[in-house]
């Protein structure tokens, strides 16, 4: 049992990712709502925050979703997106 827990530990620690996507041509506040909805429709996305001033969408999603899935979702809004960064979020695993 202990062996399994040790093997699973890295996965449990890095279960989520923060993906930052640049949507350069967003031009009005309403665009942020449309892009946000599109990104939230991607399976595995927990939340998304889109800011017009920076033209950035910050997505919290389960680890390992392909860039393509995010970018295709953005594309449905009529905009092109570019993934500018993604990093794993440490999450406290609940063992007890």
């Amino acid at each position: 049992m202990k062996k399994w827990l040790i093997l699973l530990l890295p996965l449990m620690l890095f279960a989520k990712e923060e993906v930052v996507i640049k949507v350069a041509r967003m031009h009005c506040p309403l665009c942020t709502t449309v892009v946000k909805k599109a990104l939230k429709s991607v399976e595995g996305v927990e939340s998304s925050k889109v800011t017009l001033e920076t033209k950035l969408a910050v997505v919290i999603a389960k680890d390992g979703i392909d860039d393509k899935a995010f970018l295709e979702a953005v594309k449905t809004t009529g905009y092109e997106g570019v993934v500018v960064s993604r990093h794993r979020l440490k999450e406290q695993a609940n063992f007890y």
């Binding site: 009005c28 506040p29 800011t51 001033e53």
Partner: peptide
């Protein structure tokens, strides 16, 4: 100032 800006 709103959260989203500028306004078109």
């Amino acid at each position: 100032t709103p959260a989203q800006k500028p306004l078109n």
